[in-house]
Design a protein around this nucleic acid. Structure first.
Lengths: 207, 207
DNA sequence: CAATAAATTAGCATATAGGAAATATTTCCC
DNA sequence: GGGAAATATTTCCTATATGCTAATTTATTG
């Protein structure tokens, strides 16, 4: 009897515009300086690792010259940076340097006909992962309607009880406390509690 | 006493980025040519849109020169390409329609001086999330060396015991079973067990 | 404030990218 | 197959990035 969309809280996540018409300033030098400094490297050390001259590095960081692509490659190799990541825009991610605690039972409730979700860390927006605890009511009907199915990947850990995870293309699997499952969420999936009491699971979705 | 890098198991996982010492061939010219042709643009047209000379474009595509970063920017703007995407590798994802079960205690062990990690779902490569259970040994010294710090976001759920989560910029937080934390992993972090017995946590990292 | 380290700048030599025009290649139509 | 037009490549010159050495300025540290 799993179920409709509400089972997938938010997922609105980010993926801002998608249209980057803006003429990005893209402070390459600034970024590079940050990276180098975060590694506690002096220009001299960075020079040794990258094979680029101190002065060149300085000029690049101060945006006095526009580095050759080969120079960028040397930089990326020498400093262990991922090139795509280097050029990535300010990255509309979760606010950096933030954390949020959710104490047991203090999450945001989100009940559905089959599940009782407790959304975690809701204070943080634009997260890469959406975590929630779910209480699967005892003896859910074992004929369920449609699969739950959505973009992304899902990780599931059984915290209490015993349940069956049904997934498309596979046989159902019985899971007990401590068992975990990682699966492609595009694949239909659904949980059914097997024990007398409700089962409790931790669920995490990543898009 | 958290610690050195080993505390962050794998992370090598996808994007092979962990350590990309390899001198990536990175056929920039080839990629650009493909893109231009897929837009049915002639060198002349591309030249007009980008402000770069026909000859320059030709040389870049034939890898006779290594374009300046500003040139790459002009190209990206003119041809509506996303720079990160330009350098991104073929984008491999987890095989679709797959799932993998890890039964309690059956993960892949990965001990370090401070923690005892049990990696989960290791059979699936290129996952968006890296899940593992960690046993935090009782009474870890509460003076720890360096922070653990890495790209991405991290979710932490306490399964058993009681521990203190130290994070940069914040006061330490005491967490008990059922409590969870979501935080920016670039922010230094470290766990210390407070109870007599070891503490057990579920950890999930998303890059 | 002194002493040291680190970063920036300067000057010059060289390698190489960028632009304009010439040359070569391909495409396409008869 | 032979042009003619379109497209791509190469040539040549100029602009600029890179390397080197050293001097100068700017942090750091004690």
């Amino acid at each position: 009897m799993p179920v409709e969309q509400p089972d997938m809280p938010e997922l609105k996540i980010e993926s801002g515009s998608g249209l980057q018409t803006n003429v990005e300033p893209l402070q390459l030098g600034k970024r590079l300086r940050e990276i180098r400094q975060s590694l506690s490297l002096t220009l001299e050390e960075a020079s040794q690792r990258t094979g680029l001259a101190r002065s060149t590095l300085s000029k690049i960081e101060n945006e006095q010259i526009s580095p050759t692509f080969t120079a960028v490659q040397k930089l990326a190799n020498g400093l262990q940076i991922d090139i795509p990541q280097l050029f990535a825009k300010p990255r509309s991610t979760m606010a950096s340097g933030r954390r949020v605690l959710t104490q047991a039972g203090e999450g945001t409730p989100h009940p559905t006909s089959t599940y009782e979700h407790e959304l975690l860390s809701t204070e943080l927006a634009r997260k890469k992962m959406v975590p929630f605890k779910t209480r699967v009511r005892a003896r859910s009907f074992d004929d369920f309607g449609d699969w739950v199915r959505h973009e992304g990947e899902e990780f599931l850990l059984v915290l209490e009880g015993e349940l069956a995870l049904y997934t498309e293309f596979y046989e159902p699997v019985v899971m007990v406390a401590g068992d975990s499952m990682y699966y492609d969420a595009n694949m239909g999936h659904a949980l059914v509690s097997l024990s007398e009491q409700d089962a409790l699971v931790l669920w995490i979705v990543a898009r």
